[in-house]
Amino acid sequence: MDCGLSPSLLNSSPFAGKSVLAPTTPAFRFGFPNSRVGGSGIGWRRALVVAASGGRASRSQCEFSGLNAPLEPTTPSGRFLSTVFQNDREYFPLAVEKQLEQLAYDRDEAAARMTLSLASDEACLHRRIAELRALDCGAAVEDVMYMSILYKFSEIRVRLVPRLSKCIYNGRLEICPSRDWELESIHSLEALEMVKEHLTTVVGWRANSKVTDNWAPTQVQRLHLCRVYAASILYGYFLKSASLRHHLEQSLDGGLSHLSTQVCPLGSKNVALSQGGGGMQPLLTGPISFVQGEKHETLKSYVMGFDPETLQMCAKPKSKSAMNLIERQSSALFGDERSGLLLESNEVILTSLASLKRIVLEAIAFGSFLWETEEYVNNIYDLEAN
């Protein structure tokens, strides 16, 4: 699927990237929340708005109404979960589990029939049926993963920004309310420090900025912003993986013998899971590189010690489904309204540093949620390795 994003972008290091604009504007100082914002209260139900210009609310707003995410479910499983998400959210986690179990059964049944018919005259027919079933199930699983990510955003009372083509008025894009606090709340303090550095690198966000600087007009090419968004999803994915590796290795270094783990394969990679009060929680991607007696005081110093192989292992999506979702989400958000494809053009969007920060924070959160969703889905439905 060609979504207009180059393979080099999606396979690049999360530390690479250029600033959207000259880094002359001071940056906003992050707040550090004590806990994640959870639940689905009044704030979630209230309509959120993307304001494309400050003083013309009646003409320059696009509501986050209904689902209204950049991607729309196209499979029966996705449409069913979309209905559940909007009308019976308490049932949503169980509905996801049941859909994945059914998809795994359908795919495996078709594969089994193909195997049994290898010596018969119907071998070609059953092979074709199995191939089509695998494609259908793969598309459905991507919808299930996407809806699961939307559900995770809803738990912090944040909706994804709709297609930008619906939200740009007179060439100006502004996102309000920003929901920055909620998007920051999913990260640990150490991870948040690395998020701040990423913001400085890709959009030129600096410390101690003034409000007038944050909302001053800023120009950015749509194509470049799309690439920043995709790279930031990868960065969020990497940060989640690296943070959990760091946590596990620090736990081992501290001699926590009560840590109970179970290894779940995904292709040639391993994921260590910890049995906690909330069920199996992913802790580690790939083989443990822990060296007895070695300490890493901060997440940043731990990550800086990665060799190229470990860095690539943490940064690269492990499944093709996750890779496809990154491309599809980025393309749908920034692409053409009709085709959904990203056009190779030099179109310039007028926006602000505040809105750029919101877009990048969303992308990082998307990557983090994608990592969690991928691990959960793979425990029920074997994803194809990337």
Score class of each variant (00 low, 15 high):
Q61H: 11
A95M: 06
R127K: 12
Y169M: 08
S188T: 15
G55T: 13
V96G: 01
A95C: 07
V96F: 05
G138R: 08
L100A: 08
F80A: 09
Q102L: 12
L183Q: 13
D108R: 11
H187S: 10
Y91N: 12
D88W: 01
L189N: 14
F92S: 02
D88S: 12
C137H: 02
D108N: 14
A110R: 01
V144G: 02
N87V: 02
K166F: 08
L81I: 07
Q102K: 12
M114E: 14
A119L: 13
E182P: 02
E109A: 14
R89L: 08
M145I: 06
L150S: 07
V84M: 06
L125G: 00
A111M: 11
E190A: 10
Y105W: 14
G138C: 04
V84H: 00
L125N: 06
S148Y: 05
D180G: 04
V161I: 15
Q99L: 02
L116P: 01
Y151C: 10
D106E: 13
R163I: 09
A69F: 00
L100I: 04
F64H: 14
S77Y: 00
L132F: 12
R128I: 05
K98H: 11
S165D: 14
W181R: 12
I129S: 04
A134M: 06
D108T: 04
R179P: 00
P76R: 03
F64I: 07
A110K: 02
G55P: 03
A104Y: 07
R127H: 13
L125V: 13
F80H: 09
T115F: 14
E142K: 13
S178W: 01
Y146N: 01
N87Y: 07
R56I: 07
L118W: 06
T75D: 01
R56L: 15
E142V: 00
D180C: 05
G55C: 03
R79H: 06
A134S: 14
E142G: 11
A139P: 03
L132E: 14
P76T: 05
E184H: 09
L150D: 03
T74K: 15
D106C: 07
W181C: 08
R163H: 09
R89W: 03
E131L: 11
Y105S: 12
R107L: 10
V161D: 00
S178K: 06
F92Q: 05
I156K: 05
A130T: 03
P70I: 06
C62R: 13
Q102R: 12
E184T: 01
